[in-house]
């Protein structure tokens, strides 16, 4: 085996081990997604196809729900944008890491999910490996896990449709998990208070189908309006400490 082959084998192996936590999450949530898709009356191929093209878990769940219940394409596109607007901030944080990439850059950008972003920004690149190659293989493995889960779940749901009522709660549980992760990282009350206040307002004032959008916009307004005020209180508190 040539040295180049050996290096490549090492790269695959290292990236595989790095991707194991994502594999566990993606395969199980992917299976859930496949089951939810078939249970909602959509054709089974919706799950693996969206895993290849959209490749954004929360949006796929939302899209499946909206398309199954007859929502319009413009509304779907707009809510997908709202849901994925956070990706714009991931990109900003890896601009530097991905700047060296050439051929694989388009794929690295396409496959920048929450979990891949988490790995890329928190993992050390193994010694002797080209960082861009490592990130590329890692990103591709993650999508392979997601695709496998979605495919498996869809086939399973088609073969033996069991009572999956309530299984789509896994998505709410996933958001709860991600919220806890946020609480562990962002230890300030403003974003949570803004979001709760905006949600109550949206619940009182608008129809359920417009809830997400209105709550998000009101939250951003609240954050921006109180930005200077928040800054002042924290500056004071830091001074005291």
């Amino acid at each position: 085996m040539s040295r180049k082959d050996q290096l490549f084998k090492g790269l695959i192996k290292k990236a595989f081990f790095a991707s194991i936590p994502v594999m566990l999450a993606y395969v199980s949530i992917g299976i859930t997604f496949g089951l939810v898709v078939t249970a909602s009356g959509l054709p089974w191929w919706f799950a693996p196809l969206t895993a290849l093209t959209v490749y954004a878990g929360a949006s796929q769940f939302m899209g499946a729900g909206m398309l199954a219940s007859g929502a319009g394409i413009p509304e779907l596109a707009f809510l997908t944008f709202i849901m994925n607007a956070r990706h714009m901030f991931y990109g900003i944080s890896v601009l530097d890491k991905y700047s060296e990439a050439k051929k694989s850059k388009a794929y690295l950008v396409f496959s920048l999910t929450d979990e891949t972003f988490g790995l890329v920004t928190s993992m050390q690149v193994p010694e002797g490996q080209n960082p861009v190659h490592f990130y590329t293989v890692l990103s591709a493995l993650n999508q392979l896990w997601w695709f496998s889960g979605c495919f498996l779940g869809a086939i399973l749901g088609k073969a033996m449709p069991f009572n999956t009522e309530g299984l789509d709660f896994a998505m709410v549980a996933l958001f709860t998990v991600l919220l806890v992760e946020q609480i562990k990282q962002v230890k300030r009350p403003e974003p949570y208070l803004s979001a709760v206040a905006a949600s109550v307002l949206a619940w009182l004032l608008v129809k359920p189908e417009n809830f997400m959008l209105v709550a998000t916009i009101v939250s951003c307004i609240l954050l921006l309006v109180f930005k200077s005020f928040f800054k002042k209180t924290y500056a004071d508190r830091e001074k005291q400490e």
Binding site: A58, M83, A85, R86, F89, I92, S93, V172, F175, T176, L178, L179, Q182, I183, Q185, V186, E190, P191, Y192, S194, A195, V196, A198, S199, F211, M212, A215, T216, S219, C220, L223
Partner: peptide, 16 residues
């Protein structure tokens, strides 16, 4: 907004 949008969105997603 980069710092605060993720916790805001997760809270709203749970409350939705």
């Amino acid at each position: 907004l980069e710092a605060y949008l993720p916790p805001v969105l997760m809270t709203i997603l749970v409350l939705s």
